[in-house]
């Protein structure tokens, strides 16, 4: 599962790509959490523009990162989800926890 993480001052952007399901969620979680714990950012951005498929495992991933950022007094936002991924997000009500933006 390819993931690119870039960090700027106080901000981490994780560029996710491919298919997000239960099979890959745990390794994504691990990589993002390592970067977050290293940099202690104010904001974690999850970019979904290159994600081709996501089921509710992706919602679990966002919810878990929300909890982590909350512990660290930071915020989380979701960026550029394609329409069918936005549909899963809407159903979950995740926008109450993370702002969804189109960059």
């Amino acid at each position: 599962m390819p993931i690119k993480i870039s960090s700027e001052e106080n901000k981490i952007i994780a560029f996710l790509s491919g298919e997000i399901d239960h099979h890959v969620a745990s390794s994504l979680r691990r990589e993002i959490d390592i970067a977050v714990r290293e940099c202690n950012p104010d904001l974690l951005v999850l970019d979904f523009s290159q994600v081709t498929f996501m089921d509710s495992s992706g919602i679990g991933l966002v919810m878990g990162r929300y909890k982590l950022m909350n512990e660290l007094n930071g915020k989380i936002s979701v960026q550029n989800p394609p329409p069918h991924i936005k549909k899963v997000m809407k159903l979950s009500g995740i926008e109450k926890l993370a702002s969804i933006n189109n960059a």
Binding site: A25, D55, S56, S57, L61, G64, V88, L91
Partner: peptide, 15 residues
């Protein structure tokens, strides 16, 4: 603990 959102059936039902 495994970050399951508890939405599996809700997704199936709505999609």
């Amino acid at each position: 603990c495994e970050e399951r959102a508890g939405l599996g059936f809700a997704v199936m039902e709505s999609f």
